[in-house]
Design a protein around this nucleic acid. Structure first.
Length: 468
RNA sequence: GGGGGUGUAGUGUAGCGGCCUAACACGCUGCCCUGUCAAGGCAGAGACCGCGGGUUCAAAUCCCGUCAUCCCCGCCA
């Protein structure tokens, strides 16, 4: 870790010369400003009391008190207060959100926040704002009240706001843990094409793309390809990648491009092997978040959901029955968003779980590759996972016998020859298999109690937004 | 694809027929302040009330259209 930081610091030092023509020199206007000094990360300042350090970052707040000037400096690791003394200070030119570097001595002072501050000896403005920023970075969201639309219009700036940008530290850790756990279980990370030949899977609208002389589509999921790679001998594969849905939905839980966390595993006996892996996976991911992101969780007043030893499995038919009994609510065929919320309330109160697998969806509501149930062939060995009232996963066992799959395709009025690329490996010994997909943004949003999924996407693509 | 709501300074809101020459907060500009930390004090700038049309003696306010945007449903992760 320390090596990596040294590497970054060294790299930055090199880059600095490239930008030299744009650097505004100010007090004390010293061109060879201690080039030999290594940058100290703000989070490590408290380990350097009494030492001279080089800090770089943004001016988070600026508070002039007479001839004193307090700067709260922000870098990717945290905040520290710096103090400029009167006549030495380059008074006017420092602005909030300017990128600066300072050299100063770390001192203990009970009057400073957390008892630590830096007495500035040299300060250089690297780049100063040329306009008034449309979003205030240094005040709580509850005070400045930025609308989501404004935050998204000025996305790179709004991400600087700790309450906005921290979402993505959490999301990154969730994805890291997803990879780490599946790797430990023998899964291979794969990448499948996002430009595909045809919208064969069904179930959702696709974005056409001009692919030389013919029309191709953006992949709605890696479904076919991950199954094919299971059959290709890797047995267990996972993928973290974007998927595209051309649905005209415009809600707080839908995006037209999102990150899908997929896995697929071969030689299973039962679809419950898939849900068992997901249970362990989620436990690992959430325990990791609890350790890695305590600050971020605090910021969102978020509590990591406890993943029980066994997440309840409820058949769709039973779920509908429960809703009818408890809430006198009629659901036909599937749960609507309200039904999902009510079912989660039920499992939390009665079964002590914030998660619930809803299983055995009817064949008519599932894609052609869904494995029919042995006991009731009108149902499938498939499931959704609900978390805190929202569907975050769909998965299930897939059809592996070649003939059954061909029949299933035909029964949907589709032409098996359109699926030759997919079907080939099913001819040569496809093991029983299944898998699932987790929506990364939905998972993040549910964990952090975000009200809109767009908050969990760096640059969301929705019905009307393709910029920034 | 269907339905509902909202557009007022840089940001977030108030005003919803005449008291609007449009208010408040934060930000911004200037001055003051050597311990601030959602800093404070004083002074100031900034909006033809999304756009177009109509009703009226009078429109930010009511009506129609249009554009933008938010949300709900279907579908889904």
């Amino acid at each position: 870790m320390a090596d990596l930081q040294r590497l970054y610091a060294a790299e930055y030092e090199n880059c600095k010369y490239l930008f030299a023509p744009y650097i505004q020199f100010s007090y004390p206007c010293q061109r060879d400003l201690n080039m030999s000094m290594k940058r100290t990360w703000i989070s490590e300042v408290k380990g350097h009391i009494g030492e001279k350090v080089l800090l770089k970052g943004w001016v988070h707040t600026l508070r002039p008190i007479g001839k004193l000037k307090f700067i709260v400096l922000r870098d990717r690791t945290g905040f520290v207060q710096a103090k400029l003394k009167g006549e030495k200070a380059p008074a006017a030119e420092i602005k909030e959100e300017a990128a600066i570097q300072i050299i100063g001595t770390v001192v203990e002072d009970p009057r400073a926040p957390e008892g630590i501050e830096v007495d500035v000896e040299e300060l250089r403005i690297l780049s100063s704002p040329v306009e008034i920023p449309p979003i205030q970075i240094n005040r709580p969201l509850a005070v400045i009240g930025v609308r989501l639309e404004t935050a998204l219009d000025h996305r790179t700036l709004s991400l600087r706001h700790p309450e906005i940008g921290s979402v993505f530290r959490v999301r990154a850790e969730l994805i890291w843990a997803f990879r780490e756990y599946l790797r430990s279980q023998g899964f291979l990370e794969v990448q499948t094409p996002k430009i595909v030949a045809a919208g064969t899977e069904g179930g959702t609208a696709l974005f056409p793309v001009q692919y030389f002389e013919r029309t191709a589509y953006l992949a709605q999921s890696p479904q076919f390809y991950k199954q094919m790679l299971v059959g290709a001998g890797y047995e267990r594969v996972f993928e973290v990648g974007p998927v595209y849905r051309a649905e005209q939905h415009n809600t707080v839980r839908h995006l037209n491009e999102y990150i899908s966390l997929d896995y697929e595993m071969g030689f299973i006996d039962d679809f419950r092997e898939i849900t068992q892996v997901e249970t362990e996976l989620l436990r690992f991911m959430f325990e990791h978040i609890g350790r890695a992101c305590p600050k971020e969780l605090g910021l969102y007043k978020a509590e990591v959901p406890r993943v029980p030893k066994e997440i309840p499995h409820i058949t769709l038919a039973d779920a509908i029955e429960i809703l009818k009994k408890r809430h006198n609510k009629q659901c036909e065929g599937d749960l609507d968003p309200e039904g999902e919320k009510l079912l989660c309330e039920y499992t939390k109160e009665e079964l002590g779980s914030e998660f619930v697998f809803v299983t055995h969806y009817p064949r008519a509501t599932r894609p052609m590759y869904a494995m029919p149930n042995e006991e009731d062939p009108t149902l499938t060995n498939t499931f959704d996972l609900l978390c805190r009232g929202l569907e975050i996963t769909t998965g299930g066992q897939r059809i592996h016998p070649y003939n059954m799959l061909v029949e299933s395709i035909q029964s949907r009025g589709l032409n098996p020859s359109d699926f030759d690329f997919y079907l080939e490996i099913f001819k040569y010994g496809m093991p029983p298999h299944g898998g699932l997909a987790i929506g990364a943004e939905r998972l993040t949003a549910q964990l952090l109690n975000l009200t809109n999924i767009r908050e969990a996407s760096f640059f969301p693509r929705d019905r009307t937004r393709i910029v920034p």
